[in-house]
Simulated assay, not measured.
Amino acid sequence: MPHFYFHTENGDCIRDDQGEDLPDVEAAREEAVTVLGEILRYRGAAFWETASFSVIVTDADGRTVVSVTARASDAAPEGWTLQETGE
């Protein structure tokens, strides 16, 4: 079973030295989203200080296989509009 490491970045890089055995890259993607969600839940105030949290997943050879990032902003994303609903 492949071994993946879940490193985090929020201004400081925190290296995962233990990792986790998972069946495949798809499972690693799901775990990366779960890890990011836990970071945002428990360290939410720090999220606004750094404006970004990332989880970078590497394989046993150190190659990046996936990364997921959440960004904070006081502005709406470019192109975003609130559409009127047709009630």
Results as ranks from 00 to 15, higher is better:
Arg63Phe: 07
Val57Gln: 02
Trp80Gln: 08
Ile56Thr: 13
Val68Thr: 13
Pro77Tyr: 03
Ser73His: 00
Ser67Leu: 09
Gly11Asn: 07
Ala70Trp: 05
Gly86Met: 02
Val66Glu: 01
Ala76Ser: 12
Thr58Phe: 06
Gly62His: 06
Asp24Tyr: 01
Arg41Leu: 14
Glu84Pro: 01
Pro2Met: 02
Val35Arg: 13
Ala75Pro: 03
Thr85Ala: 13
Trp48Phe: 14
Arg15Gln: 13
Pro77Met: 07
Val57Cys: 05
Val65Gly: 06
Arg15Thr: 14
Ala76Gln: 10
Gly79Arg: 10
Gln18Gly: 07
Asp24Ile: 08
Phe47Ile: 03
Arg71Val: 11
Ala51Pro: 03
Arg29Lys: 15
Thr50Lys: 05
Glu31Arg: 15
Asp21Lys: 13
Gln18Cys: 09
Arg29Ser: 01
Arg29Cys: 14
His7Pro: 03
Thr85Ser: 09
Thr69Met: 08
Asp59Tyr: 03
Ser54Pro: 05
His3Pro: 02
Glu38Met: 09
Val68Phe: 00
Arg71Leu: 11
Gly44Thr: 10
Ser54Asn: 09
Glu26Thr: 12
Asn10Thr: 08
Gly44Arg: 06
Phe4Lys: 04
Arg43Lys: 13
Glu31Ile: 04
Asp59Cys: 06
Glu38Arg: 14
Ser73Lys: 01
Val35Phe: 05
Ala75Arg: 14
Asp17Arg: 09
Phe6Tyr: 11
Phe53Arg: 04
Asp59Met: 08
Ala32Asp: 01
Phe47Asn: 00
Leu82Val: 14
Asp74Ile: 11
Thr69Leu: 04
Asp21Met: 13
Thr69Tyr: 00
Thr64Trp: 06
Ser67Thr: 10
Ala51Gln: 14
His3Thr: 10
Gly11Tyr: 06
Leu40Gln: 02
Ala27Cys: 12
Thr81Ile: 14
